Computed example of a mutant assay.
Amino acid sequence: MPTDSGTNASRQGGWTADRMAAQEGRTFVVTGATSGLGLVTARELAAHGGRVLLAVRDAARGEAVASTLRRTYPGADVEVRRVDLLDVDSIRRAAAEIGEEESVDVLVNNAGISMVEHSVTAQGAERHLAANHLGHFALTALLEPVLRRSPAPRVVSVTSYLHEKGELDLDDVAWSRKYTPLAAYSASKLANAVFGAELARRERSSPSPITSVLAHPGYSNTPMQSKGDGLMGIAMRVSGRLFAQSPEMGALPQLFAATEPGLAGGSYVGPDGRGGRSGHPVTVRLSAVARDPELGRRLWERSQQLTGVRWGDA
């Protein structure tokens, strides 16, 4: 994965969370913040003084994480907001609650599921696509007003290097034909990347633009690796333990994407190691398919149809 001409932190020895600027006075929303990359992201943002809203499906687990963070970092400003990304009504309730904030500076769309057996939501979408993309699409649209109240709002879409192998069939979002967990997961990660790029394009003409930045964690050993179904899930668990980098390293690209000053809309951050699988965060070039404006337009329209949420609804 070639390095872009943008910010290349490895030239200064490799960016780590220790190099993150203080985040006092900034509010972050992190989805999926009870484990894995989301937990590390929330922890580092809180440790650096940011106000962190843990947007999580399991409120009890969220409160446990918040309590731990407050004990570990006295004075940490951490709160829980419950949201089920498979339930549009839950997303609307969470967005209304978060919308009472003075502003939200950064939304980190991190939550996701991986390698599950085939199932379809009430809206007719396959579950990977629904949880990983459609829920975040709706949440981002509904948080638009509170984001625009920030002087420099940013949305981070967390994708995967596997998006380059994904194929989006917007006429068969239920995956009613041949289904494999890996193909469906890769397609959902392509949707994340296409959405991030399309949001960046649309915001370039906005008088108060939201900076849309993309990030991927490389190959990281997270709890999501242990939740896959069937033989693929077993293979992922074994491979993750043997070959993947730690969640602390895997979270660095999205932390960089969320906090590094000067990143342009459409920037894509990933590890600097061989094949983008591990290493320190740098800006890299997004795949051509993810940058396709026609695919971006079609995904945007289809996402609005499936969620019932249109940009500007809130």
Rank of each mutant, 00 (worst) to 15 (best):
A96Y: 01
Q123R: 15
E97M: 09
A235L: 05
T159E: 07
R70P: 10
G124Q: 00
V155N: 09
G240W: 00
R204I: 03
V104Y: 03
P2G: 06
S206F: 02
M236K: 10
R204L: 08
D84N: 06
L86M: 11
V52I: 04
R177A: 14
V65Y: 03
V80A: 08
E126C: 04
T307F: 00
D58T: 00
W300M: 04
E294R: 13
L162E: 03
A9C: 09
P271Y: 06
S188E: 01
E117S: 15
G14P: 12
R285M: 14
V104M: 03
A130K: 06
T27Y: 04
A94V: 07
L252Y: 09
D4G: 14
S287W: 12
A152L: 01
A215Y: 00
A187T: 13
V213E: 05
S206K: 02
A42K: 05
V83E: 00
L255M: 09
G135W: 08
R154E: 01
L143E: 02
R57G: 01
E24S: 12
A235W: 00
L190S: 09
S205C: 12
G228E: 04
R202H: 12
T211D: 09
G266T: 03
G50N: 02
D58V: 00
F256V: 07
K227C: 08
T27H: 09
E100V: 07
K227T: 14
E100N: 11
G276K: 05
S114Y: 07
